[in-house]
Amino acid sequence: MGEAAKTVIFEIERRNSTDENSYWEKFELPYRANMNVISALMEIRRNPVNTEGKKTTPVTWDMNCLEEVCGACSMVINGKARQSCTALVDQLEQPIRLQPMKTFPVVRDLIVDRSRMFDSLKKVKAWVPIDGTHDLGEGPRMPERKRQWAYELSKCMTCGVCLEACPNVNDKSDFIGAAPLSQVRLMNAHPTGSMTRDERLNAIMGEGGLASCGNSQNCVESCPKGIPLTTSIAALNRETTVQMFRNFFGSDHAVG
């Protein structure tokens, strides 16, 4: 409030490339009203001088939409994974500590490679198959109430925050995490998608799938879109229970 030389202090965990060791660098920049972590990073990029007065390389980070719908700018801010575009400096304790989401391979500074999430989506067949050798025509209609419910699940932006918060997603385990699991529930809810629901259920019953969840429920607490991830996981738990018995005892008809 009217202070002449108010500043903001940032501590950033940096590294030059995936294989190099990380180091911390401190920056002090002039405060501006309503600034967020991204605008602060832009300021550092404009004038990359650390608190020791030494000119350094600009800090690199990822961003795209700047309105919390793309997920690209996710990073660990004061210990918690979240989007940097909606991290307002006024609401953060200083010094503000920025770290990359190290659950993923770090490319450089705050940029991580989230490819594993996209690979997981392929693994669990998170799409609705509509291609054929001829026009298959229109699919069945989705009831409006169901569409509204499914819309909440479709808000997932593959940001990776739920994987970063999960204690079971780490380099000792190949757990795919909550996001792709919830997408299975979304695709299985779709009237056309449900025609191949057993394929997706069997996919998440494989290595690193649903069973690796340990119910810490950090995902649902951390999800920036408020997706009911743990309800999705529990619902899939029930469906895979049925699928497990169906696989063993069931008859030979194709889709359940």
Partner: peptide, 20 residues
Amino acid sequence: AFTTKNNPGHYSYMRNILFV
């Protein structure tokens, strides 16, 4: 137990503490 990376410090939610 040995294939988890416990994080109750930053994510100190009740369920996560019970998980640990």
